Simulated assay, not measured.
Amino acid sequence: MNLTNLRHLDISGSTMLEEMPPQVGSLVNLQTLSKFFLSKDNGSRIKELKNLLNLRGELAILGLENVSDPRDAMYVNLKEIPNIEDLIMVWSEDSGNSRNQSTEIEVLKWLQPHQSLKKLEIAFYGGSKFPHWIGDPSFSKMVCLELTNCKNCTSLPALGGLPFLKELVIKGMNQVKSIGDGFYGDTANPFQSLESLRFENMAEWNNWLIPKLGHEETEALFPCLHELMIIKCPKLINLPHELPSLVVFFVKECQELEMSIPRLPLLTELIVVGSLKSWDGDVPSLTQLYIWGISRLSCLWERLAQRLMVLEDLGINECDELACLRKPGFGLENLGGLRRLWNNQGLPWSLPSSKTEVQKKF
């Protein structure tokens, strides 16, 4: 390849490309390389990244299941490429018998990036555990981390010590049953900067344990968390006892979840889709409440209705049990600040309905 002065190769929109052009590693002046593809027969070509020391911005490495020799990943030495800020590492969605767990563990271990990394995404990794570098506090610039469909991992890495982590997304971790001390790390004040947290498709997750500092339960957990999303976690039964900064809470299809946070002082928006076992908590700032598809609506409503003193927007859709809204003490008479109501057909009111704003959230 006679393009040694080439600085930008943007193939971010390619959908049919299966492998990199020959001798791409000779493009030593390359600064932009949005994707690096590894084919089934050419997994060893990952070594060509070794020479691309000027890469910067975003890099996605796809087809990592094709790296059969972990020494090829070791040769890359991503720690020597300091200007990559956004790193995406993707294995195949196919988790067939050809996948080797021990090889994938070693490959991910040797692909440790430079500590200047700001964003990291790992998808379809087939190892049973994560290497120690993921969550190491030395990654002091990390602000966004996403772990997706790493279905063989039985535990999450220690992420609580990342000092400036603001956004964390964890999806499809089917083998994780409990989240406990190992998730928070060794720091005395875990997740000090986290603002947005999302758990999704955690089929076996049933217990969210709260770390203890010394002999007392920590009060510093998630002090900056503004947005929490819990989606399709059907066995989860509990949440942290205190979320003092939570503003938006979205919960969907969590049939066993018992909401027992005594007080959510800043919560302004609550969206509940599908089942929720129970609710018991004070929400003095709640202005927007949207409820979708709850068959036993009274279990939720009777706990909330007398506490919704500043509610402005109320949406109820696809809820079979609606009679509770007409009970004395549990109905709309408590909602003096209500400005807008939308509903599905069959509700006992003839008020204007507008679903557009709410549907954008789903």
Score class of each variant (00 low, 15 high):
K166N: 15
I88M: 02
W342L: 11
L264F: 13
K50S: 08
P131G: 11
Q115V: 14
S26E: 00
P240M: 07
V107A: 07
N42W: 00
P244K: 14
N207K: 11
L53K: 13
M259E: 02
V107W: 06
V283T: 15
Y184D: 12
N83K: 06
L276G: 01
L347R: 05
K166S: 12
L325G: 02
G315L: 06
H114K: 03
P265K: 10
H114T: 08
I261Q: 03
H241C: 08
I261L: 14
C150W: 05
N344M: 12
I11T: 12
K360R: 12
P223S: 13
E18H: 05
T187D: 10
N206C: 08
S92V: 02
I61P: 00
L168K: 02
E318R: 14
D186T: 10
Q115P: 00
M229W: 00
P265R: 11
G172L: 10
V169D: 07
L341C: 04
C150A: 06
H215C: 06
F249E: 01
G135Y: 11
V169L: 13
H132D: 13
N83M: 13
P82W: 05
D86I: 07
R303V: 00
K129G: 05
T356R: 14
N5A: 07
G336N: 13
K235P: 01
L286R: 02
N344D: 15
L311Y: 05
F139Y: 13
G43T: 01
I105M: 14
D282A: 02
Q345A: 09
L335H: 05
F250P: 00
S196E: 07
D313E: 10
G180P: 12
I134N: 05
V90H: 02
M16K: 13
F164N: 14
H114N: 15
L9G: 00
L117N: 08
R307K: 15
L159M: 09
S12A: 10
V358T: 12
